[in-house]
Design a protein around this nucleic acid. Structure first.
Lengths: 110, 110
DNA sequence: TTGACAAATCAAATTTTTTTGATTTGATAG
DNA sequence: CTATCAAATCAAAAAAATTTGATTTGTCAA
């Protein structure tokens, strides 16, 4: 398994960052049930509309959700392939042997 | 699949938060190779020791890494079961049908 | 058109996270 | 003991993320 490039690692951390907020996780949990419009999310989560918009933008930029306009409403839903992508990043660790080889750390030259 | 409790969701977001930083992802990538002491991580990542200590603490609190003291050195390694745990959280989304049922959002009473 | 309403954007205030340099703690070797 | 060195802790500064309320944008219906 090759070591990922630094730029890839930054991308990975950015995606995890989108999941690093309780409200955003709650949004995702609600969308797991069904597609919802912003006003429904507002009602259920009891947060202001602009606050929700801010968090939806972060989730959208991380490609974890998608917005579909219909009339005056925008319906948000999960972008499942992106979840699979993150799952795969984590799954690589499962392949490692449970005990990593120790490495003796002694005083180095100069 | 039951809806997780709010407290669980906060815990989930906390764990993802630990992965939400490029340096911490880099630390994890290095530890994927082998157990390393703090001074080695400092050298390889070219960051100050106190900075590394700060980030290692976050990873340790999220149970993503473990520290093992040996003499003056503390060797850090990955705590693989925790990675599996997060992987499983994400894997639940794979079971969802790709297209979630739309829900019509119309004007609600009053 | 105009009015109503859903959602996005924006700037300012607030909160949280991260960085930095200095200090402390704890273990070892002499 | 005492020197030394690895690592943690701490307080202050800096940077980044989040919240808030007001405003704007876009769509639809009358």
């Amino acid at each position: 398994m090759a070591i990922p490039k630094t730029t890839d690692l930054i991308a990975v951390s950015k995606h995890f960052q989108a999941l690093a907020d309780p409200l955003r996780i709650q949004i995702i949990e609600l969308l797991r049930e069904q597609e919802l419009c912003v006003c429904d999310l507002c009602d259920r989560l009891e947060v202001r509309q602009s606050k929700l918009s801010f968090h939806l933008k972060i989730l959208k930029e991380a490609e974890l959700v998608r917005g579909r306009q219909q009339g005056r409403w925008i319906y948000y839903s999960l972008n499942l392939p992106q979840f699979v992508h993150l799952e795969q990043y984590l799954s690589e660790f499962r392949r490692l042997s449970p005990i990593l080889p120790a490495r003796i750390c002694s005083d180095r030259p100069e």
